[in-house]
Simulated scan of single mutants.
Amino acid sequence: MNKTQTQAVKDFFSKNNTFVIVQADNPDGDSLTSALAIGRIIESLDKTAYQFCSVKIADYLSYIDDQSTVSSQFPPDFDASIIVDASAKVLFENLEKSRKFGLLAGKPCLVIDHHSNECDLEFATIVYQKTAVSASQLVAEISKIIGAKLDLTTKELITIGILSDSLGLVSEATDSAAVRLIADYIDDGVSLAKLDNLRRETYRKSPEIIKYKAKLLDRIEYWADGQVSTVVIPWNEIQTYSNEYNPSMLVIEEMRQAIGVNLAVAFKIYPDRITAKLRSNYGIRVCDKIAEKFGGGGHPYASGFKIKGRNTDVKELTDKVIVEYLRLIKDD
């Protein structure tokens, strides 16, 4: 970021007093913590921050401080907006349907994102987008630019975001800057043991969810000589179990840990669309490319996409994903 852009970020925070912080339609640990962290930074400047997300924050993230402040109701008035952990319009379908994009377009907007896709949000006035393991890491950088002092809770939020997207600092995208930042925060009082214990408590599952997980594991299918594993989750199961736990997240890690598997894909069947969550093993950097083929995006080892429409055949979609995977593997 050059001096002009740095000054633009400083001006964005100094010249506006009321902000709405927006997450994409499918929030995860990093998007939630980066939103909450930037909100606390704004409040430390004696300004007002509203938290908005069009969907309910998942129960498995309930251990994160301040998550209850996120609302699905758009604030009546604000000076500027901040979009975190996303820069692709396709990730804001609900916001677009509600015509709230128009409210963002007329005011200053800062986008904070660590994904590699080009930002296509035409109304964004400042795009803070660079390579990093998480959006939370970029929030920490912005706090330094504007001279904000972080309290312990804000440092804990940033730490959770980095740990979430780096899979505990072991992902290929983890860099020394992220490790140094967490080390500094540990010196300042952040306890990794405390944060991990809180996370584990919310990951505890009811007997019903354990039984359902067993059914999902039994439904896993293997393709391409065992290199690709898939599971299909129908709408009635999404309705029944999603409030307690995201069905795809129950099994996708086990799916990719099977011997011989390189890519795991969980399909969820909604009345008007199919979504896919992709995870790959180390060295198989294909998830983002496969997702982009179908209009989605993400990271080399974790990504997702959705196909709109009521008549999409999941078997045909599976075949197409496998073909794209095999093409990418062959090219590599």
Rank of each mutant, 00 (worst) to 15 (best):
M1L: 10
K3S: 15
F12K: 05
S14R: 12
S14L: 11
I21V: 13
P27Y: 05
D28A: 02
I42Q: 07
E43G: 02
Y50H: 15
Q51N: 15
F52E: 11
S71G: 00
S71H: 01
P76H: 09
I83P: 02
A88D: 10
L91E: 06
F92G: 04
E96M: 14
S98P: 00
K100L: 15
L103C: 00
L104S: 05
V111P: 10
H114F: 09
H114V: 00
N117I: 06
E122F: 10
F123V: 03
T131Y: 09
A132Y: 06
A135C: 14
A135W: 05
A135N: 03
E141L: 08
A148R: 07
K149I: 09
T153A: 13
T154P: 01
L157R: 05
L157Q: 08
I158A: 10
I158K: 04
I160D: 12
I162E: 07
L167P: 00
G168E: 00
L181D: 03
I182T: 11
D184N: 05
D184R: 03
D196N: 15
L198F: 13
Y203N: 14
K205F: 11
E208V: 15
Y212M: 02
K213S: 15
K215F: 12
L216T: 10
R219E: 15
D225R: 10
Q227H: 13
N243C: 04
Y245R: 12
E253M: 09
E254S: 15
N262D: 14
A264P: 07
F267S: 03
I284G: 01
R285G: 04
H299Q: 04
K306Y: 13
T312Q: 15
D319M: 05
L326W: 03
L328H: 05
K330L: 08
D331T: 05
D332L: 13
